[in-house]
Computed example of a mutant assay.
Amino acid sequence: MIDAADKVVQDDERAMELFLQSRQRHQAAPDAWAQRSDEIHCLDCGEVIPPARLVAMPHTKRCQPCASDVERR
Rank of each mutant, 00 (worst) to 15 (best):
M1Y: 12
M1G: 14
I2M: 15
D3T: 07
D3F: 04
A5D: 04
D6Q: 15
D6V: 09
K7L: 05
V8Y: 09
V9T: 04
Q10R: 15
D11N: 07
D11Q: 13
D11C: 02
D12C: 09
D12H: 08
E13Q: 14
R14V: 04
R14W: 06
A15D: 04
A15W: 06
A15Q: 15
A15F: 09
A15E: 09
M16W: 14
M16H: 11
M16C: 07
E17T: 04
F19V: 04
F19P: 00
L20P: 00
L20Q: 09
L20T: 07
L20K: 05
Q21S: 12
Q21H: 11
Q21M: 14
S22K: 07
Q24T: 12
Q24L: 14
R25V: 05
R25A: 03
H26D: 07
H26R: 13
H26S: 10
A29W: 14
P30E: 08
D31Q: 05
D31P: 00
A32S: 09
A32D: 05
A34F: 12
A34P: 06
A34S: 15
R36W: 11
R36G: 02
S37F: 11
S37E: 12
D38M: 13
D38H: 15
D38R: 14
D38A: 13
D38L: 14
I40N: 02
I40D: 03
H41C: 10
H41R: 13
H41L: 14
C42D: 02
L43G: 01
L43S: 04
C45L: 06
C45F: 03
C45Y: 08
G46A: 05
G46N: 01
E47F: 06
E47K: 11
E47I: 10
V48D: 06
I49R: 00
I49C: 01
P50H: 08
P50M: 07
P51K: 13
P51A: 06
P51F: 06
P51E: 03
A52T: 13
A52P: 05
R53W: 05
V55H: 03
V55Y: 02
A56W: 12
A56K: 15
A56I: 12
M57F: 15
P58S: 02
H59D: 08
H59C: 03
T60Q: 10
K61D: 05
R62C: 02
R62P: 01
R62E: 00
C63A: 05
Q64F: 12
P65T: 04
P65Y: 03
P65N: 02
C66H: 02
C66Q: 02
C66F: 01
A67H: 11
A67C: 08
A67Y: 09
A67I: 03
S68W: 10
V70N: 01
R73H: 12
